[in-house]
């Protein structure tokens, strides 16, 4: 059940993931200079999606609908452009992402479910995981949620269900950037102790730095190998990679000026060069 990454090549893989994620971030930033979008959310989730798509998910590069693929549902649909950028990096989507909707919709290659109405993805993921298991297939299902999204009670119905039915092939990944539209999650509606809540619902829990590809990959692999459903609480930074956006609720949704885009790209590529040197 573990992804096919051996120890010798792990460092190389993680460097590739970081480079992949930087390119995906650049796509999001260029788009955000052309139209307003949920740029902060896209930047916080990109590292997680990059790790999952490039090192964990079993997929075929030339066929996004391959019947044997693992499934990834982006439940935090407002992170759509993070997903689109990753899918474009993979060649699943064309380079021109401008016409795509602000939340993942049916009919877009690589989009497993329409999301954006929050609190739907984990239930859909439960159905997928159960459906695959009852069909005798060994595919895994990954559901990426927001943290503010966990305010929605349907998530906890699904959490209860997954544990009751011991869905070994289901992993949830919480993009724990600590911010939602109107401020810090703990001020809007406190989630902590979040890990204990998942444990109390019967899930295996890992908590890692969501911007550390090696840590994310290792934790997800460990959760897959555990019995029952697993959740990765990934500590992330909203707007990650662009200093004037990081941790700023005002960049939940926004549009960059040309000057801001130039500054953001310069910072992004400087950081990328530094990590490679």
């Amino acid at each position: 059940m573990s992804p096919a990454v051996d120890n010798e090549s792990a460092d190389h893989v993680d460097a590739d993931v970081a480079s992949f994620a930087a390119s995906a971030r650049a796509r999001v930033l260029r788009l955000a200079a052309r139209k307003p979008l949920h740029v902060g959310s896209a930047l916080s989730v990109i590292d997680l999606l990059a790790v999952l798509y490039t090192t964990v998910l079993r997929r075929r590069p030339d066929d996004p609908w391959w019947s044997g693929r693992d499934r990834l549902v982006l439940s935090k649909g407002h992170g759509a452009y993070g997903l689109y950028a990753v899918l474009a990096e993979l060649g699943v989507l064309d380079d021109c992402l401008d016409g795509l909707p602000g939340h993942p919709s049916d009919g877009i290659p690589g989009v497993e479910a329409a999301t954006g109405a929050l609190g739907h993805g984990l239930s859909i993921g439960c159905g997928m995981a159960l459906g695959l298991r009852r069909a005798g297939r060994d595919q895994r299902v990954f559901v990426v949620t927001g943290d503010g999204e966990l305010d929605e009670g349907s998530n906890w119905e699904a959490a209860q269900f997954a544990a009751h039915h011991q869905l070994d092939n289901l992993v949830a990944v919480v993009d724990r950037n600590g911010l939602q539209q109107e401020g810090r999650t703990e001020q809007v509606l406190g989630l902590e102790p979040l890990a204990d809540k998942w444990r109390a619902f019967g899930w295996a829990v890992s908590v890692v730095n969501g911007h550390d590809p090696a840590a994310v990959r290792t934790a997800v692999t460990g959760l897959i190998d555990r019995r029952g459903p697993g959740v990765l609480i990934a500590d992330t930074v909203k707007g990650k990679g662009v200093s004037f956006m990081e941790g700023q609720p005002s960049w939940h949704m926004g549009q960059l000026t040309e000057e801001q885009l130039d500054a953001a790209l310069a910072e992004l590529f400087a950081g990328q060069e530094a990590s490679l040197s």
């Binding site: 159905g127 997928m128 459906g131 209860q160 269900f161």
Partner: peptide, 21 residues
């Protein structure tokens, strides 16, 4: 058996349908 959780019930049905059921 989904229990008394209708929103989850319908979401799970959708997930099942998306895997061929």
């Amino acid at each position: 058996e989904v229990g008394i959780a209708e929103a989850n019930l319908v979401g799970i049905a959708a997930g099942l349908a998306r895997t061929g059921w």
